[in-house]
Design a protein around this nucleic acid. Structure first.
Ligand SMILES: [Mn+2]
Ligand SMILES: [Mn+2]
Ligand SMILES: [Zn+2]
Ligand SMILES: [Zn+2]
Lengths: 142, 142
DNA sequence: GTGTATTTGAAAATAATTTTCAACAAGACA
DNA sequence: TGTCTTGTTGAAAATTATTTTCAAATACAC
C-alpha cells in the first residue's frame, strides 16, 4: 500500500490528516527495514521538524490498529515497525535488516494437519523467514 | 527437554547449578504459556525466596543463548519466555495463552519457492499459529 | 474566515531493563 | 569435610523505554 492509499484509509476512519501523521507515513514508506519508534522519530523530524516522540508512539499504535503498519519481530528486536501489505509473511535479511513480504501459499496443508493433531482451531499465523538478501550475499563473498 | 536435561546442558557449558537458576528452570518447566520476566520472578520466589529480578533477566538471557528457552512473540506481548524444544513452531491459544510446539513438515517447498523468487538464502524460520485450544473452545461454546 | 473537536508536544510520571559492586555460594581440590 | 577460588547473586542506582497529563495548536466542517 502506498502513502496515498494509506492517507485515504486514515481519512475514511475519521482521522485527521496532520503533518506529523503524514511525515510518519512517509518515513515508513521510504524504509522497508522496520524502524524503531526512535528511528521513525529521527527521520520524521527531517520532514516535520516539530515532530515529537510521543506522537510517533501514538501514531504507530493508530496505524497498527488500522492495519497500515505491522510490527516486525526478531530475536534481537521486537520494536520494528514497517508499512504493511496485506499479509504477515516477512523475509528478514540478517545482514542489512531489510524486510520484505512474500506471498504465502502452501501453508494450508500444514495448518490443517496441526489442527487435526492438536484439536486447536487456528485462525492466524505469522511466518518469518530470515537469511541473506542478494546484496548481502555479495558482500559476504567479497 | 525436561529440567534434568536442561541442568546438564548448563553444567556442560561450564555454568554453575545455582539455586536461582534451578528455580527459574523449574518455573519454565511448569508453565507452558510463556511467562514474562516479572512473572518468572513472582513464581520463582516461591521456590527460591531470595530470587532477584535482575537474576531473572540474566538467566533468561543465558538460557536463551544456550537454546534452553525460547522467546514467544505475539502482537501484544513479546517478552514471553518458555522452555524450548528443538524447533521454533508454536501454537498459541488466544484464550488461555498456553503455548505448545508442533512438528513442522511441509514448509520446505514454500521456503524453496521463496528462495527462487527473491534470491535470498534462507537459514531460519519462525512459524507461529494462533487459535483456540480444545478447552477454550469448550468455554466459548458454553 | 470562524468555531469546535481532535491532535499535538513538552514535561512529568511510570515502567522496563541494564549496570555496578560488595557479599555470597558452587564446586574443585586437599 | 573444610578451605579456596571464582562465578554468581541481589540491592541500589542508572539508564532507557513508554505512557499520561494538559494547555496550546491545527485540521477541517460549515
Ligand atoms: Mn500464509
Ligand atoms: Mn516480538
Ligand atoms: Zn541484506
Ligand atoms: Zn486455551
Amino acid at each position: 500500500m502506498n502513502q496515498v492509499e494509506m492517507t485515504q484509509v486514515l481519512r475514511q476512519a475519521g482521522y485527521r490528516l496532520t503533518q506529523p501523521r503524514l511525515a510518519i507515513l512517509q518515513v515508513l514508506e521510504e524504509n522497508d527495514e522496520g524502524l524503531s519508534p526512535e528511528e521513525v522519530h529521527q527521520q520524521g523530524r527531517a520532514i516535520c521538524a516539530s515532530l515529537g516522540l510521543v506522537t510517533v508512539y501514538r501514531t504507530l499504535d493508530l496505524l497498527t490498529e488500522l492495519g497500515l503498519v505491522r510490527r516486525v519481530h526478531s530475536e534481537q528486536r521486537c520494536q520494528g515497525f514497517a508499512s504493511a501489505g496485506s499479509d504477515r509473511h516477512y523475509l528478514i535479511c540478517e545482514g542489512c535488516h531489510r524486510v520484505i513480504e512474500f506471498p504465502c501459499h502452501g501453508l494450508e496443508a500444514l495448518i490443517e494437519s496441526v489442527r487435526q493433531q492438536t484439536g486447536y482451531t487456528i485462525n492466524a499465523h505469522l511466518l518469518e523467514l530470515s537469511g541473506l538478501c542478494p546484496e548481502c550475499q555479495m558482500g559476504q563473498a567479497a
